[in-house]
């Protein structure tokens, strides 16, 4: 049982990290903290990808006479792309947060919601 649990430690870590990120997204009212949550959430998936590329006894995938096995480089390459996507998402999110701060004067979700409600009352 212990081996079953410990032998899969990479999956446990990724699931735990993913849930931590998800918790931050759902529970934190601060928009920046939400984005940190999104980043942890995505990084968990990166870890998952990187760990599935490992072949037991394998070396880095560079041609080398003494090597008998190589790790699978494809998940690593894929995740480079996903990291770029994650960075772009964060950048867009930060740009949005800056504009939200300018227009609403706050980056706390509950305060923004209150402002929105008051705005509707004024309109009607």
């Amino acid at each position: 049982m212990a081996e079953w649990v410990l032998g899969r430690y990479n999956y446990w870590i990724y699931v735990a990290l993913m849930m931590i990120g998800f918790y931050a997204i759902v529970a934190k009212p601060n928009l920046i903290k939400k984005i940190i949550g999104v980043n942890i959430f995505q990084t968990a998936v990166f870890l998952f990808y990187i760990s599935i590329g490992k072949v037991s006894g394998g070396t880095a995938p560079i041609v080398w006479e003494e090597a008998t096995r190589y790790d699978n480089p494809i998940p690593h390459v894929l995740i480079l792309t996903a990291i770029v996507v994650s960075v772009s998402t964060t950048a867009v999110a930060f740009a949005l947060i800056i504009r939200i701060k300018e227009r609403f004067g706050t980056i706390e979700e509950d305060q923004i919601r209150d402002l929105g409600r008051r705005g509707e009352e004024v309109e009607s």
């Binding site: 997204i25 939400k34 999104v38 959430f41 947060i97």
Partner: peptide, 27 residues
């Protein structure tokens, strides 16, 4: 702005799920 932000959060969660699904299939 807030509509876009909410879409970004939910859209990213959705896309990350898709990415994870791809990882499982590849595995």
């Amino acid at each position: 702005l807030t509509a876009s932000y909410n879409y970004l959060i939910l859209g990213t969660i959705g896309a990350t799920f898709i990415l994870l699904g791809i990882g499982h299939l590849y595995m």
